[in-house]
Design a protein around this nucleic acid. Structure first.
Length: 430
RNA sequence: GUGGGUAUAGUUCAGUGGCAGAACGCCAGACUGUGGCUCUGGAUGUCGUGGGUUCGACCCCCACUACCCACCCCA
């Protein structure tokens, strides 16, 4: 037992029947994306380390301590080893692809979605894995295509509410905020530093450190004793420039109009440096400490940061692992039934061949079938059919083959009929 | 990276310093072409790993590892 190879820390196998639930979420997302005119993009699982350092931000936790990074071998003696990293998120990769393929030159708004694994070297716990799965979408493009419009922000958020309903998750809460543009944030950061200077010594160790390095993160602190100080800190809303404020007001106005419930949460801070203006998060009560189902926001300067053209955008990523947890927590699991319709039971020696022909026939007519074995006794065939989750059992024995009349029994009701060989497909389909 | 909890059969878990257990599941028979019920029988464990104490350790002690939960962070 001890020297068996096991899935490494923070990774896991997703097995049936759970995989049906994963497929259900994936399918619902693809259907919704189609309705909103998003198209799939697939980017590599690993990228140049610099992409994340510059895109996500050198100072973020993700980049500074959570990435799986390694040195690739130099391809020639004259070359240096290249530093590569398993993607910790997918937005940077999408924007990199947007720039690399000059997608902005089409002049149109790009609406892209992705599905795939992401990697962060964190300590695993409920809803948090080292290989986890995200489904995300991005809207970006030239300003002239409308990429900067608050209509895009509201549309994305509305789409997510629609998506959650389609998936079957009901108990969510939407938090929205505006973190302003780069100028707004700089002024707000300065104000926070000044306000924190006199009180930070009374706060927790983390906050003392954050007050210096990244004051915004102080807002995220959950220490009960610190809350009194945090409540007195300046609010981001007071530091938004006219442009940012109007943009945010317009987003809220559209959300009100289409009837999406939300909370403005001025203390919501997102952990990636590229976010600007609108940020949002959907949370769920059944997820334990990792309560965020999905999160996202606008990233107006990201393309330029990566050496690309001006291409404002907004996007989100949802945690597939957490969607599945939320569905299980709500116990409203209604995944598609993927079980076979028919169990074909060969009866008696030499019947395997005949049963194989019938099973092949059924499958060619899109009837899912499981095939037994002529070594099974009748009772065992029934048990195998039951276990496979089949609705019907079809016997293929000497009597059937001789008479051309095949016994089909409904495992639920117990009804049994004899059906002519040529009529089996039609009978099962009706 | 830090803290707490857990580790015994396929699964969920009892257990005692002196022969390793239950329930469910699994296999077979009763019952050789009609199941789900019932009855009878059966298989399965380096008791997480390594060390220590002891005549003797699954149990007590130490270390390690893994998993779970939380901090942190985030999807």
């Amino acid at each position: 037992m001890s020297n068996l190879i096991k899935a490494v820390r923070g990774t896991r196998d997703i097995l049936p029947p759970d995989t049906a639930l994963w497929q259900h979420v994936e399918k619902a997302c693809r259907d919704i994306f189609h309705l909103y005119n998003f198209h799939e993009i697939r980017t590599p699982v690993f990228e140049d380390t610099q992409l994340f350092a510059r895109g996500v931000g050198e100072e973020t936790d993700i980049v500074s301590k959570e990435m799986f990074t390694w040195e690739d071998r130099p391809r020639a003696q004259s070359e240096k080893a290249q530093s590569l990293t398993l993607r910790p998120e997918n937005t940077a990769g999408v924007v990199r692809a947007y720039i690399e393929h000059k997608m902005g030159d089409t002049g149109k708004l790009q609406k892209l979605y992705y599905i795939g694994p992401q990697f962060r070297r964190e300590r695993p716990q409920k809803g948090r894995y080292r290989q986890f799965y995200q489904i995300g979408a991005e809207v970006l493009g030239p300003v002239a295509a409308g990429s900067e419009s608050p209509a895009r922000d509201a549309e994305i958020i509305a789409m997510l509410a629609h998506l959650l309903r389609e998936v079957g998750i009901k108990e969510w809460t939407l938090h929205v905020n505006s973190v302003g543009n780069a100028d707004d944030r700089a002024r707000y950061n300065q104000a926070l530093r000044e306000a924190l200077a006199p009180v930070k010594d009374k706060m927790c160790g983390d906050c003392q450190r954050r007050a210096e390095t990244n004051p915004l993160r102080v807002l995220d602190c959950k220490h009960p004793e610190d809350q009194q100080y945090i409540d007195d800190l300046p609010k981001i809303s007071a530091y938004l420039g006219d442009e940012s404020r109007e943009h945010f007001n317009e987003v809220k106005k559209i959300l009100n109009h289409v009837g999406i419930q939300y909370h403005v949460n001025e203390r919501m801070v997102r952990g990636l440096d590229y976010y600007t203006r609108t940020t949002f998060e959907f949370t769920h009560g059944g997820l334990g400490a990792q309560s965020a189902l999905l999160g996202g926001g606008r990233y107006d300067g990201l393309s330029e940061m990566l050496g690309g053209p001006k291409a404002p955008g907004i996007g989100f990523a949802l945690g597939l692992d957490r969607f599945v947890l939320a569905l299980q927590a709500e116990e409203t699991v209604a995944a598609a039934n993927l079980n076979p319709a028919v169990f074909v039971a060969p009866l008696g020696p030499g019947m395997n061949a005949e049963a194989a022909v019938i099973a092949r026939d059924l499958r060619k007519h899109a009837i899912a079938a499981e095939l037994g074995d002529d070594g099974f006794r009748v009772k065992k065939s029934f048990e195998a059919a039951e276990r496979a989750g089949a609705k019907f059992i079809l016997f293929v024995g000497e009597n059937e083959v001789a008479s051309g009349q095949f016994a089909i029994k409904n495992l639920g009701s117990g009804e049994q009929v004899n059906v002519a060989r040529a009529e089996i497909v039609n009978w099962l389909k009706s």
